[in-house]
Design a protein around this nucleic acid. Structure first.
Lengths: 171, 171
DNA sequence: CAGGGACTTCAATATAAAATGAAATGCGTC
DNA sequence: GACGCATTTCATTTTATATTGAAGTCCCTG
């Protein structure tokens, strides 16, 4: 929740074979992804891939991060779906190799487009239904409630138009 | 997680005595707050307060939303702490009355300032430690890893400077 | 300054989310 | 076209998070 930042955290990371750079990167991305409501394992995977100078296999991830097969597979799936990670071809190699896409803005764009904007649409239709329902309200409450719903409506519109702009600003 | 939006949801809200406007508002804010990783009960409370034309007591919230004493108390505490709700004085009344602060931008500002920016600071110091640790790295990997850490650093700086700007844009 | 609401805390419980790993599937190779 | 490694899926288990409500604290009020 609005946690007062975990108590004197000392190494969330448990996997072996990790150098200091990797540990820092992993913890950093765990925190970052948590902010977006994504599980720890996804932060770990992305963090390790991010600082890795060469592509890694699923098996690398499993052993170095000490996570399960399923977690690695699902985490990679999610990360690919949002454009944060891609598979690269490795000649003469059977297994898939993965790299982090360093263009974080692409990832942010996809996140906004696929997660936020759809929710704003749903919210908009809710507001419409609320406006329709205003008529049923007792006279006394109608005016004030209408004002509040309008406020909501203004915010949704602003969000829908400004979010993409704000994103460009960061990119 | 990156959920494909819950299956044909029909009324998450369980409390009785709620009109259609209230139900819509509550579900809407449940979803919105969930995006920020806040629990359902907080969305319910804020949603009901938002569309309510007059201040409500803790007891109102408990009965109408059918939540416990503790949930109401803690939820209000959190909401007040981020400036989303405030207590208003009600003459000749013993109990506290609460209203939603309609200025959502205030809430957003407080969220960024208290939740995001501190995390960016922590992340920055991580990056510094990573840069320091670069020296220990085998020659072969150093160049590429350095490039990646630099990328990270650029992003953090951009975030720290642009986030407050982006916020102003929305307000 | 005692009694009694109103509110807060927090240990216990209930609920939800993530990780695990065995079984199913896909896919390339011989 | 069957074998075998690589990957995905998903029921189960584990872990983390939210909710409850009884016990504690804080005021106001008389």
């Amino acid at each position: 929740m609005l946690s007062e930042s975990r108590p004197a955290e000392q190494s969330i990371v448990k996997g072996g074979h990790l150098g200091p750079i990797e540990r820092e990167a992993i913890e950093m991305f765990i925190n970052f992804f948590r902010l977006l409501g994504l599980p720890k394992s996804i932060g770990e995977i992305y963090g390790l891939l991010f600082v890795s100078p060469h592509p890694l296999t699923m098996d690398d991830l499993m052993t170095r991060l000490d996570i399960s097969l399923g977690a690695a597979s699902q985490g990679l799936k999610t990360l690919r779906s949002v454009g944060a990670v891609k598979a690269v071809y490795s000649p003469g190699e059977r297994r898939d190799h993965f790299v982090a896409d360093l263009e974080l803005s692409r990832f942010a764009a996809s996140f906004i487009k696929e997660q936020i904007l759809p929710k704003l649409e749903v919210a908009s239709s809710r507001v419409e239904r609320m406006e329709a329902a205003l008529a049923e309200l007792p006279e006394a409450e109608r005016r004030e409630t209408r004002a509040r719903i309008n406020e909501l409506s203004r915010w949704l519109n602003r969000g829908r138009t400004m979010l993409p702009v704000a994103l460009k600003l960061l990119a």
